[in-house]
């Protein structure tokens, strides 16, 4: 008979030295599980990415589906991206005016708006808006196809689902993000000018001349094209989360939510890295 049992039989309450250890062991075990899941997720994502790349570069190419996705992801996101860009431009103009006036640098307002919009707010707002609209859409669509065996049916029809569903969507995201960013930039700049012109008369010509003074392609191209990386992240994560879904309606909901959350998170993290990269290589 064990010591604990003997003590229990003799009416003595057994001491509890094991409880603390048990708690630590459980915490360690669940932490290890979380770490394992974290690395497993990255491993699976890497394998998925490799399968998509392999499918994308080998014929037959799914041009028809690609064009459909360019329309779905590009044209249909345009109104929302333009609106978000415009609102950001207006807010930026109002806020910057107040701050710059306080420091006696009101004349720098057009340049502050232009540089803020094309360097950072235009690209990041586009990335986040698209990750919300397109990430959720792709995640939910593919998850729904997965749980209703439509992806299996595509595979059973001898069509590669990585090529038809994933490669086309990811490529469309990569191609459309820079164009959507241009639209967001344009709307942001116009609304930035409008917000300023409403307070103090200023022609568009003056605003552009003053704002773009000293700007060159290095100010414009790298921040715009960095959104292609955002497109890769949004497309890849949304397709991955959608195509690995399990369970019914709840699984579809989880896939849509996780697509948005993870793609937004990785877009923000990638932005930090890319900004540093641009500062180093395109000073």
């Amino acid at each position: 008979m064990s010591d604990r049992k003997l003590m229990a039989v003799s009416g003595v309450n057994p001491p509890l030295p094991g409880r603390g250890m048990l708690l630590i062991s459980r915490t360690l075990s669940s932490s290890m599980d979380l770490i394992n899941e974290f690395f497993e997720w990255f491993g699976d994502l890497g394998i998925f990415f490799w399968q998509v790349v392999r499918a994308a570069v080998t014929p037959p190419f799914e041009f028809r589906e690609l064009f459909r996705q360019l329309d779905e992801i590009g044209s249909k996101s345009l109104p929302l991206v333009a609106l978000a860009g415009a609102a950001t431009g207006a807010v930026l103009s109002l806020e910057a005016r107040y701050s710059l006036t306080r420091f006696g640098a009101k004349s720098l307002l057009p340049a502050a708006i232009v540089f803020s919009v094309i360097h950072e707010t235009g690209p990041i707002i586009t990335g986040l808006v698209v990750s919300g609209r397109v990430g959720a859409g792709i995640g939910a669509e593919l998850a729904s196809m997965k749980v209703t065996e439509q992806i299996d049916a595509i595979e059973a029809s001898a069509v590669n689902p990585y090529r038809l569903l994933a490669a086309t969507r990811i490529l469309a995201c990569i191609l459309m993000l820079p164009f959507l960013t241009l639209a967001a930039d344009l709307c942001g700049l116009i609304m930035g000018w409008v917000a300023q012109a409403l307070v103090e008369p200023l022609s568009l010509h003056q605003f552009i001349n003053s704002g773009f003074k000293g700007a060159d392609f290095n100010d414009f191209l790298p921040p715009t094209f960095k959104t292609a990386v955002f497109g890769l992240i949004i497309g890849l994560i949304a397709c991955f989360q959608g195509m690995r879904t399990q369970g019914g309606a709840a699984g579809v909901g989880r896939a849509a939510t996780s697509s948005v959350v993870l793609s937004s998170l990785f877009v923000i993290l990638a932005d930090v890295v890319l900004v540093k990269f641009i500062i180093i290589f395109f000073p």
């Binding site: 729904s144 196809m145 209703t148 065996e149 439509q150 299996d152 049916a153 595509i154 059973a156």
Partner: peptide
Amino acid sequence: FQHAALYD
């Protein structure tokens, strides 16, 4: 397929 799995 059991539930036909038509492309909806």
